[in-house]
Design a binder for these strands. Structure first.
Lengths: 147, 147
DNA sequence: TATTGTTATACTCTATAACTATA
DNA sequence: TATAGTTATAGAGTATAACAATA
């Protein structure tokens, strides 16, 4: 009959709750830009260069129909262009527009500001450790963790 | 034109993604017990003693109708009992059953196991720092962060 | 036949509003 | 009138399945 830990001692619980807090706050801050959190992933992935919708779906770990919606919205914002592949005309190659790159920069500023909010009152040395450990724990993008 | 950070350098991003990973995995592990992640919060809160549904809603930061659903499910599992308050007959005081306490113990074992999974390959010293920092960053339960 | 993107549909989670029974 | 709990409904977010165009 060992004394049971209080539930905030669990890293898993803390991550779930903090993740939700960060997501909610991030969504709030992004809404000024007309963006949703999930669309930031698209802007980030396209920074390296054009990509088909299916490649994007795999990389982001979402289903293709979700990509359709995300890209529809980003096209409405003129942040992304669908360019029909001339060789394989089934493919849409997604390109970042200048506006898209600008929005991307803004999202990174928003994220940096949110980091400051979240880390206010945290010892800088501990914050550095946190960054490193979190990155270490993150599974590489695109490897869907299926059941 | 400062070099922009890669997006995994953001603590906010990392927390959002890791939170989602932890939530998905936790849900998976809990399904063996017939539980969903959100119900663990109920079991945890009731450990200290009975509570009305409205108090629970405030503490968990969810809307009262959500509590109704959660408690319905937990009652079906015979983990929780609704006991009509004899003084104010509008109130349902929620009590943990023996089965509920047992399920609670199981969820804490599951969480501990998940912690091991998540922290595999992390230096124990860093893991300790992580625990402390995450707890520090967590807003106290029940104080809804409204817009 | 297989693949890319799309549409239609459904399921989960959560919120709001209207309702009931008590106070 | 106000409050505790409930029900009905709606809105995100994501998934699956069927479909059209192209390979």
């Amino acid at each position: 009959m060992e004394p049971q830990q209080p539930w905030d001692d669990s890293v898993a619980f803390s991550l779930v709750r903090l993740g939700a807090v960060a997501h909610r706050r991030y969504a709030e801050l992004l809404s000024d830009l007309g963006l949703r959190p999930r669309q930031v992933g698209v802007l980030e992935q396209l920074r390296a260069g054009p990509m088909s919708q299916l490649e994007l779906a795999t990389t982001l770990g979402v289903t293709p129909s979700v990509v359709v919606d995300m890209v529809d919205e980003l096209e409405r914002l003129e942040a992304v262009r669908r360019v029909r592949d001339t060789v394989d005309r089934r493919r849409s190659n997604l390109e970042l527009t200048d506006r898209g790159r600008e929005l991307g920069r803004s999202t990174r500023e928003v994220a940096a500001g949110l980091d400051e909010e979240l880390l206010a009152g945290i010892d800088p040395d501990h914050a550095r450790t946190l960054r490193a450990v979190l990155r270490r724990m993150l599974p590489p993008r695109g490897l869907r963790q299926e059941a």
